[in-house]
Design a protein around this nucleic acid. Structure first.
Lengths: 352, 352
DNA sequence: TTGAAAGCGCTACCAG
DNA sequence: CTGGTAGCGCTTTCAA
């Protein structure tokens, strides 16, 4: 194994000079630098990560904690993780992959052992017990999600409230006067996952502002679940002409069930969703949808956490604006709109 | 920060004793061990990873290289990665996440810098340039996939040939005499990805043995691609009554197109696939399918690579047997089988 | 602009 | 069964 002193010897300089050539932390004459670099590549020298970390007290690694639950949208996780890894590499950092099930203890372990310089934690819930632990660590952290009390921690996420607003408003502007939100499975609400609630609030707020009737219910992502959900909202809301879907896994069953019942999209029923682009275009009629900018969130998380690490910035909360993509699943309301009241009461609630 | 000598002082023993308590590499009296452990937890001591790695020349980390291409099946990758991380943790190892795009240089970097003790590389192609690089590294490696020349490297993968055989044979046993294989997109074959070819060979072999007619064509996973594929095989193979799908992304379009054309599954056409269980059950008619045991492959990869690291085993190739799950998409051939020839010529080829 | 050398915290060898 | 201690390969301060 070739070490820094092998390089120093070969180049006829001191060890510290080689180190400074590598780090750029002090000026080096062009000729010296060149000699050193020649030796480095001719010897095939690679600085040893552990020695560097020990001496500098920096690991050049970030921890990334990903969820494993079955109700997460796997492709979104992957996009996000890719964004993190690629961005980390452009800042000369590596990524240590951890799973949710290591829990708070895992965070303490990697932090305490100095394995990483900073942490990025996905899928953080409103009352996540890990939040308090993260606040107590030596290393900075950025969360994907928005806990109730984010003090001291960076947060990045889609602005779910704005996403809910955008979708509801879009339907209202197409003349729809009665909307239904197909929400995530009940388990997601039970867990107190804040994004579901934020989306719902945005949806309700826009519906109210636009003066349209709107219901919302959680939905199990299966054929049976979707069928039951449909029965319920159709009986609950006569004149229903548009759906907002915040449940990726329910999309396929939903569209199957609709087609089986002879309800055409968008002629009979408009559908808009929050889902990745590739999912949106995987149906016979491409879905108008808001996307989760997962890769961007990943990049941003890395940049925020490194800014905190270098003292360039304080922890802050960043909610990214939703991007709506119009495709083919949203049309005008089928029946001429009934005379629009100046200010109708919006009804929106999230039942079980 | 609390160090090993703080613990030694607190417990009234030497640092080496603390070290040996931690590693268990030499006998320690019960009383000493207890005192040391008490000090460790009362001081909240965490051994520093970098110092340990420097002194022991072991990082206790594995590199995991995941693909980023759009034609990979993301959930399978995730299952696999989870299996790797969880298993690595049970063996006291962490996982460094790398992306495909770091290429051979990335492998050399993490290897040369001693960041990891071993490497696991996913999605390895028949003529993958990384194979030669991996062979030259100091650390052992295990590949997911099967390159043409795997000498010196461990390999784990599904036995794709057996999977192709199982599916074709299953259909033949249900009386189907004319089969079509809907393969991955042409890009996959062009890339020389060995799993596609292995699956195809197994399918062809079983068809020949069973004396059934069988065609095979690559297919773009889109509505247009699937429709064109269907037109082609139906005109090419009169009496076609069963499909084998080796293209997860094409499943949804395929089933939509079939339903739009009034072809019922399984009454008019039987369909079997190679896909994850959750995908198989996400359609109106649950698909009989072979699954990729991704989590198992991940576990196995970790165990194999650690066995190599510890000198407990030589690099070897392990192909896991396919597991077929009967669901609802496969029925008997619709028309009574034509008199079965003793040994008919099977036709199977993979056109563009 | 460069060199010398003191650690960083741990492991594992050598002694006892 | 336990202690002392020489490194592991690098960074960074102090000195020149």
């Amino acid at each position: 194994m070739v070490t820094i002193s092998d390089v120093a010897k070969d180049a006829g300089v001191s060890v510290s000079t080689v180190s400074y050539v590598l780090s750029g932390k002090r000026p080096i004459s062009a000729t010296t630098r060149e000699r050193v670099e020649r030796s480095i590549s001719s010897l095939g020298y690679h600085p040893q990560a552990s020695a560097r970390a020990l001496a500098s007290n920096r690991s050049s690694a970030l921890a990334l904690v990903v969820p494993l639950r079955r109700d997460v949208i796997v492709p979104v996780i992957m996009q996000f993780a890719s964004g993190v890894v690629v961005t980390a590499r452009t800042h000369d950092h590596d990524v240590l992959l951890m799973t949710q099930d290591e829990g708070a203890g895992g965070l303490q372990r990697v932090s305490g052992s100095g394995l990483v310089d900073a942490l990025i934690v996905m899928d953080v819930e409103a009352q996540d017990p890990r939040v308090e632990v993260l606040r107590g660590l030596r290393q900075p952290a950025v969360l994907i999600g928005l806990p109730d009390d984010p003090r001291g921690l960076g947060c990045v996420d889609l602005d779910f409230a704005a996403a809910g607003r955008v979708l509801a408003r879009h339907l209202a502007e197409h003349g729809h006067r009665a909307l239904a939100l197909l929400g995530p499975s009940p388990a997601v609400y039970d867990r107190g996952t804040s994004f579901a609630t934020r989306f719902l609030r945005g949806y309700q707020q826009a519906a109210e502002e636009e003066g349209v009737r709107a219901v919302a219910h959680a939905c199990e992502p299966s054929f049976a679940g979707v069928a039951a959900w449909l029965d319920r909202v159709e009986s609950e809301l006569p004149g229903l002409s548009a759906l907002v879907v915040h449940n990726e896994a329910a999309l396929a069953p939903l569209l199957s069930v609709l087609s089986a019942r002879g309800r055409r999209v968008p002629e009979d029923l408009s559908v808009v969703a929050l889902c990745p682009a590739d999912v949106a275009v995987s149906f016979p009629v491409p879905l108008s949808a808001v996307e989760i900018p997962a890769a961007t969130i990943g990049e941003l998380a890395v940049e925020m956490v490194l800014d905190q690490l270098e003292g360039r910035a304080q922890p802050s909360v960043r909610l990214l604006p939703p991007e709506f993509h119009e495709r083919a699943s949203c049309g005008p309301a089928p029946r001429p709109a009934t005379p629009r009241p100046r200010r109708s009461r919006a009804t929106a609630r999230m039942g079980s």
